[in-house]
């Protein structure tokens, strides 16, 4: 294979990834909504409802209630940062043209940037609900991001490389060991926090904060935030599948990919079930919960280093 075709495939992979996530993420959100509805004895919205929501918002007027640049920029930065994450992600074990330029650290970096953009927008809006929501979001980020980092760090330790493809897809091949099993548990228990769903939808908390950081947003700006949340949700649901479920290795990329996507849908069913069977935690209760997760994850890393 010539170098040129390799690059062409790599670039195609970037767009393929973006297309895959942009197209499937709202559907998966619809799955969660439908699962919740069924648990609640409701019929629930159509599976495509989240597409309609985004489309409708995109067609609405963009109200710039704060009137300052950071407020307008925040949704763009958040959306762009999650797109970057997807662009460097080696989906189903195949690196994109951009993967070699990134590593596990830049992945965490870009994910955090999205969170920071949400905070930026919230602080710029100067709304008291947004401020409370932002302070909750910040607390959650400080507690949850290290847990995510440690999940990736286990991959780094197992494979001895920071390269994304190796970190994400190398872990299952390098045998789990006890730390690996513990980390699977940690990422499952942290799942609802990563996707900001009940019991950890604390920052948005409709009944208390009316949407928290997003309260002042409307129209296309809000659509971008919504889309950002859905993409982030899909990424976090896909990550444990990629890291802890070995690739099928059928030789056909599309078959491998299809299987991983089916498994991602299963994770979304789990998200829906968990959301429907939990009340929202208070921020102090959530911090205690994250604290325990953090210590366990740290112990697993310690064990992986020593043994």
């Amino acid at each position: 294979m010539s170098q040129f075709t390799e690059i062409a495939i790599g670039i195609a992979q970037v767009f393929g990834n973006l297309l895959l996530f942009l197209v499937i993420a709202p559907f998966l959100d619809g799955v969660v909504r439908r699962v919740m509805a069924r648990v609640q004895s409701r019929q629930g919205p159509p599976l495509a409802q989240s597409y309609y929501d985004v489309l409708k918002l995109l067609g609405k007027e963009n109200i710039d209630s704060a009137g300052i640049l950071p407020f307008r920029l925040a949704p763009l930065v958040a959306f762009a940062s999650i797109l970057c994450v997807i662009a460097i992600l080696p989906v189903a074990g195949r690196a994109t043209a951009l993967t070699p330029y990134a590593d596990a650290i830049s992945l965490v970096y870009l994910l955090t940037l999205g969170g920071v953009a949400v905070l930026l927008g919230a602080f710029a809006s100067k709304n008291i609900y947004a401020l409370i929501g932002a302070s909750r979001e910040m607390t959650t980020m400080i507690m949850v991001e290290p847990i995510l980092f440690m999940v990736l760090l286990l991959g780094v330790l197992k494979t001895g490389s920071l390269d994304l493809t190796a970190v994400i897809y190398g872990t299952p091949m390098a045998a789990f060991g006890v730390p690996g099993v513990v980390m699977i548990a940690v990422s499952l228990f942290g799942l609802q926090a990563f996707v900001a769903r009940q019991p950890f939808d604390i920052a948005e908390a409709e009944q208390e904060l009316l949407g928290g950081p997003f309260i002042e947003y409307s129209g296309p700006n809000y659509a971008l935030f919504k889309y950002y949340m859905m993409l982030k949700q899909m990424f976090y649901a896909y990550l444990p599948i990629a890291m802890f479920v070995p690739l099928l290795g059928s030789g056909f990329y599309l078959v491998d990919l299809a299987l991983q996507m089916v498994l991602t849908v299963v994770v979304f069913l789990l998200i829906g079930l968990l959301s429907a069977t939990h009340p929202r935690y208070r921020i102090d209760q959530a911090i205690r919960y994250f604290g325990v997760l953090f210590v366990i994850a740290l112990a697993a890393i310690g064990a992986a280093v020593i043994f």
Partner: peptide, 16 residues
Amino acid sequence: AGHLIGFDTVFMQAWR
């Protein structure tokens, strides 16, 4: 009450 603590399943089932 279920709704107010963010537990909509209680909300929906009680109202059903």
